[in-house]
Design a protein around this nucleic acid. Structure first.
Lengths: 171, 171
DNA sequence: ACTGAAACTGTTAGCTA
DNA sequence: TAGCTAACAGTTTCAGT
């Protein structure tokens, strides 16, 4: 069994209480779960679903946005449907001399239309790029032109993506 | 100048026409760009933005959904704001004997609340998991319990994510 | 936090080019 | 066929309770 903190540190805080910034209640979590799955659900349908009045629900959603819990509402576009039929993950490591420029490098590469996500990492690689390209030529020229041609880039490793699935719900 | 097809292949289709399934025009692309950035923009604001009547715009958006170009509308929840303060990328490789079970494996792991994205790969690793965990213990127990403990998993490599940025726009 | 009324928006039908 | 105008249904939003 895990030792109780009182056995070790008599003056530690009595109970962990709520760790979170302001605290989300169960209704907030149900709202987030619903909007995570369908951001265009009408406010009245959402209110019914979570069991509160529409006006209250609307206020909750706005508060969640103001708190930064909801960062935004996005349409999920199928890359293949707009002619980007090839997706890949590209691990990139930079020269150690270029570490100070990572921010600038990422802000720059992020503008390319092929880039869908940038994951800025601690580890062997400096970041991973999730990209979507029209075809193999487009992918290759992206890697060559924007990554390998840059003297700050030490190396890249590209893996094709067969399928990308979103997680079910973080709550 | 590009040779005309009649010079080369008299019986080939006259002109390349539209290569895409049905074809998206410029208005469609502007709609997609706008909704990619803000899925909750009102239909009338969107119509004004792209320069068509609200009813026309509404029909376009519905058609884009029916065509599968728009796969859905999702709220972007900040994992840190709901107590998942640690994000990581986990590369997973399976035993070659387990390759036939990948689909099942992924469908299973995808249900875990920590899993935000699953990228199913061609390459050295079989897939990459983008996960969000409460803390290091939560992350470690996820890796140990759901990955390393499984006999089908040959190996995993975990890298912490410092920052995750979405791409600007695929169009 | 809820109720109800006012303002607004989304949605459909029918007409026009 | 694609777009527009106009009318209706439904939703958001803000009082007051």
């Amino acid at each position: 069994m895990t030792p109780r903190s009182s056995d070790l540190l008599p003056d530690a805080p009595a109970a962990p209480k709520n760790v979170r910034p302001v605290g989300l209640d169960d209704v907030d979590r149900r709202i987030l779960t619903a909007l995570h799955a369908d951001a265009r659900m009408s406010n009245s349908a959402l209110a019914d679903l979570v069991g509160i009045a529409a006006s209250t629900c609307h206020g909750r959603v706005r508060r969640l946005q103001e708190m930064g819990v909801i960062r935004g509402f996005y349409a999920d576009i199928d890359p293949a449907a707009i002619g980007l039929s090839l997706q890949a993950m590209i691990s990139v490591s930079l020269q150690s001399s270029a570490r100070g420029k990572i921010d600038q490098f990422i802000q720059n590469i992020r503008r390319r239309p092929q880039v869908m996500d940038v994951y800025f990492l601690a580890g062997n690689d400096d970041f991973i790029l999730h990209v979507a390209a029209r075809d193999t030529d487009d992918l290759r020229s992206f890697v060559v032109q924007y990554l390998n041609a840059d003297a700050d880039v030490a190396g890249t490793q590209t893996s094709l993506i067969f399928e990308h699935l979103r997680g079910a719900s973080p709550l």
